[in-house]
Design a protein around this nucleic acid. Sequence first.
DNA 1: TGTTAAGCGAGACGGTACGTCGCGTCTTAAT
DNA 2: ATTAAGACGCGACGTACCGTCTCGCTTAACA
Lengths: 199, 199, 199, 199
Amino acid sequence: MARPRSEEARRKALAAAADLVIERGVGAFSIEEVAARSGVAKSTIYRHWPERAALIIDTARATFEHVVTPDTGSLRGDLAAYTAAMVRADLSTGRSAQLMPAIIDAANRDPEIATLVDRLKDEREQPICTMVARAQTRGEIPADLDIRVAVGTLIGPIVFRKLIQRQLIDQPYVDGCLDVVVAGLHTLAASAPTPHRTA
Amino acid sequence: MARPRSEEARRKALAAAADLVIERGVGAFSIEEVAARSGVAKSTIYRHWPERAALIIDTARATFEHVVTPDTGSLRGDLAAYTAAMVRADLSTGRSAQLMPAIIDAANRDPEIATLVDRLKDEREQPICTMVARAQTRGEIPADLDIRVAVGTLIGPIVFRKLIQRQLIDQPYVDGCLDVVVAGLHTLAASAPTPHRTA
Amino acid sequence: MARPRSEEARRKALAAAADLVIERGVGAFSIEEVAARSGVAKSTIYRHWPERAALIIDTARATFEHVVTPDTGSLRGDLAAYTAAMVRADLSTGRSAQLMPAIIDAANRDPEIATLVDRLKDEREQPICTMVARAQTRGEIPADLDIRVAVGTLIGPIVFRKLIQRQLIDQPYVDGCLDVVVAGLHTLAASAPTPHRTA
Amino acid sequence: MARPRSEEARRKALAAAADLVIERGVGAFSIEEVAARSGVAKSTIYRHWPERAALIIDTARATFEHVVTPDTGSLRGDLAAYTAAMVRADLSTGRSAQLMPAIIDAANRDPEIATLVDRLKDEREQPICTMVARAQTRGEIPADLDIRVAVGTLIGPIVFRKLIQRQLIDQPYVDGCLDVVVAGLHTLAASAPTPHRTA
DNA sequence: TGTTAAGCGAGACGGTACGTCGCGTCTTAAT
DNA sequence: ATTAAGACGCGACGTACCGTCTCGCTTAACA
């Protein structure tokens, strides 16, 4: 019955928030500044996002919007395509690399934010699960492989380097990690044959 | 001619800072609260640490104090001992898992802090480098292996799970990751023999 | 085609406003709260009263609705009846005593409100003027008495005690003040005979 | 042991507060504006005064600083001098006339402020009490006169005209009121002789 | 073995941002 | 056309910490 929330206000605030993060870092991120830049009143921002952290999260979410799930026929090929896209679209921009620590920090002390962060995490990891499942169907990797291990060994090294070590991610690094992990998975698959292969 | 800085003040402030993080999380961490709890005056804290982030870093540093560099004769054994100690002493307590994002966030916008964080990082990764070097000497893994890849694939999955995914680290997960990575490294070493082995 | 302004909305809003003032004081008075309590939409309230202060005034006006103009044959008698009614119906409830300062404060900075307040004031003082005029006709008090002085000395002490001193008004106080002022007026009438008396 | 509160900050804030009230009225009075004008930080203002109203009160208090207690030998003379000073120093400036309603409004809803206001009131009324006592000693007015009645009839008409009616106070009005009230008091003293006079 | 400069606790200071509240205006759907 | 509902821009509220700066007091190294 009342006026609907202004989509324009939301859009303008998010855009200003993203700009602000890029220009001056998460540390300089403040609702007041977002309000000043966007022309959206502070109270309106608080109507849309209950607190600072929620706006940061929504700002970050856009980063993961275009995650792909390639299907090249081989795990190595899928991963190469996936990581290439990830590096290109996401980590290499430096945006999520700056946003994520702040977000995780916020999640560590606010369960509600933690929920949102978990959702964000699932969105990002879903492609890996799909690729791993396909590889398992093809018998490339052990059918009983713990999916957590798959995700951890495949994404872990890359995310670790970017977010924790705060280093650039170059192609040799990514290739080297994939070489190691894919070789390991293949070796395990051969030595502990899956039902599919033993058939 | 002047009185030396009170080591007791430093100790009390650090202890109160650690307690505060454990009890109420990084979010509740503030110089004012540390001063109130420790009985050390705010001005004294600022005399010892130039700013908030520096105290957080020093609080975190204690966490990595007891990192070990085991020497069991095999890469797998070394890693098992190392990760066990890491899990036990550090990540499993939840302390560094909360501190690190805050620290990294600070480092992302303050180069001086970044320097401190890099030092922290090196301290933690040094054992891995040592273990990898020994394994290379033994011919267990490729001699030309990029050390960054070694560190990334070995620590990455664990740190990723703890800090980014904010999940508990259990032994099956650690074992699974080590299985994959060590198998990969061994396979690569076999298929692309090192100079040492081919000799 | 148009619906007339809802008299019910007006009534409900006024009632809620009065309740709110009585229960929680003028300080807690807000349009938002009146809207919430009355079920009348905020926009509707603004259609009936152009601003906060106007609603406060209307809320106060009800207080003076039943002011009487007694005619007992003597000034002392008239005043006794008048003040008794005033004390009973108005000041003793504590309502106007709380509303008036807020209203006057509003009037001090908004001329439009000042106009409304002046009207309110005139309504209240009219009976005094009537009673004084009758007393002058009877020769009880000086014919050339400044009406402002009459009003001031007669109402002033009572209003002063209630609004400025924020004290209860008891009968001895009222009687004492009337004794002094009426005695003074009679004395002046005797010593400086009015045209009426000298005739 | 700590640094003492800055008297300069207090002084500058009070001065800015007074200026603000005079220029734009109590309605436009805000801590933020006082901070901006005075150059004293908002947080410092809140260190000195717990809330808006407290600063308003202190701003008003200055108004009554120079209240006199004349001793001319007659009640009429004392009152003339006293009211002249009051009119000159206080009400005529328009400052307290604007401040008082706001203060009283604040007192109506905050007991702590009410206490401060009561103190303010006592300070202002003390001279009246002294003058009345002297007049009683001289036998000018009834020895058993209720002091509340004395204060009410003497100040009430003036304060009423200024604060409630929001009118200018001119000399004829003051004189007229004093004529009435002093005449009344003398008459009562004559008709109900004090012990002193009967001696 | 005083002296004295620094360390210390306490906390005031100028700031910035927080998240809340109320204002008065406005848009929307329903009646 | 009026209403209920509530979003909007605006601006002040009072709070929490930041990092800096006096204050007196205490204390260890030097003279």
